[in-house]
C-alpha cells in the first residue's frame, strides 16, 4: 500500500504543479543554474527558469553580493550562447568583473534608465522577447499586478527574470522565489593569506512548491559550492503563495 500510495501522491503532486503552470523538463535549467548542490530546495529538483526571481538587498555591500550571485546563475543559464540583459538605474556594474563569474560581458545588453516606471516598462518588453535568455532588472517596488504580468510574460516567452529589489517594501508578489544574499567571510583551507573565493550567505526566503533554506556558499571553479558543512535546510514552512 505504501509504495502505491506514494506513487499516486507523487503523480497527483506533479499534476498540481502542471496546473500551477510548472511544466516539467523544458522550464528547468539542465544544470540547475549552478545550484545543483541545493537542488532539493527547488520544485522537481531543478532551478526554475522562465520564471521571476526576486533578490532583496540593502546597501552597496549586499548589492555587490547579490549581483555576484545573480551573475553565477546567469552564467549557467546563458552558457556562452544566450543573451542576457541588465536593466539598471545607474552605471555601477563593472563589466570587467563579470568574466570572473563566467559571463561574457560583450554579450550582455545594458539598459540604463533612471526612471523606475521606465525600468518596469523595459523589463516587461525584454521579458516578452523570445531571443533573450535572462534579464536582471533593478526594480525596487512593483505591485502584485506588475509581478503577475512579469511572471506570465516570462512563462510565455521562456525568459528568466531576476528582480533586484533594494529596500523593497511590497512583499505580496507573484514571483516564484525570493532570495537574500549577504557577503560572508571567505574561508580558505590552504592557509594562504589574503582573500579566498567569494563567499555568500544565501537565504532562500520563499520558493513556490519548494523548500526555503539558508546556505553558506562560495563561487569556486565555475560553480557554487558549500563553504562549511552540509546545507542547513529550514523546516518546511507552509505558506500560501499566490
Amino acid at each position: 500500500m505504501g509504495v502505491q500510495q506514494a506513487n499516486i501522491l507523487a503523480g497527483l503532486r506533479k499534476d498540481i504543479l502542471l496546473m500551477q503552470g510548472f511544466k516539467p523538463a523544458e522550464h528547468y535549467a539542465a544544470n540547475s543554474g549552478g545550484l545543483s548542490l541545493i537542488a532539493d530546495a527547488f520544485p522537481n529538483g531543478a532551478f526554475p527558469t522562465a520564471a521571476i526571481h526576486e533578490l532583496l538587498y540593502k546597501g552597496y555591500e549586499s548589492a555587490a553580493a547579490t549581483i555576484g550571485f545573480t551573475s553565477c546563475i546567469l552564467s549557467h543559464l546563458v552558457a556562452n550562447a544566450g543573451i542576457a540583459v541588465f536593466i539598471t538605474s545607474d552605471d555601477i556594474i563593472f563589466p570587467q568583473a563579470l568574466a570572473f563569474y563566467g559571463l561574457n560581458a560583450s554579450n550582455i545588453l545594458f539598459v540604463k534608465l533612471a526612471n523606475e516606471k521606465h525600468r518596469l516598462a523595459a523589463m516587461e518588453e525584454v521579458l516578452k522577447c523570445n531571443g533573450i535568455t535572462a534579464v536582471v532588472g533593478e526594480i525596487k517596488e512593483l505591485s502584485f499586478t506588475d509581478s503577475r504580468r512579469f511572471q506570465l510574460a516570462a512563462e510565455q516567452h521562456g525568459v528568466t527574470g531576476f528582480l533586484l529589489r533594494q529596500n523593497a517594501k511590497n512583499m505580496a508578489t507573484a514571483s516564484v522565489s525570493r532570495w537574500k544574499v549577504q557577503p560572508a567571510p571567505t574561508i580558505d583551507h590552504t592557509g594562504l593569506p589574503g582573500l579566498s573565493y567569494p563567499a555568500w550567505n544565501i537565504e532562500l526566503l520563499r520558493i513556490r512548491n519548494g523548500k526555503p533554506g539558508s546556505w553558506n556558499m562560495q563561487w569556486k571553479d565555475g560553480k557554487l559550492q558549500h563553504v562549511t558543512g552540509p546545507a542547513v535546510v529550514l523546516e518546511h514552512r507552509i505558506r500560501k503563495i499566490v
Binding site: V111, K112, A122, G131
Partner: peptide
C-alpha cells in the same frame, strides 16, 4: 546571436522609446 532579429528588434523598440543612449554594450 546578438544579430538575431529578435534581439535587434528589441533594441530598436527600447531605443525608440527611451532614447538611443539607453541601450549599450561594454
Amino acid at each position: 546571436v546578438l544579430s538575431d532579429v529578435n534581439i535587434t528588434e528589441l533594441v530598436d523598440r527600447l531605443q525608440s522609446r527611451f532614447g538611443n543612449i539607453a541601450v549599450k554594450r561594454y
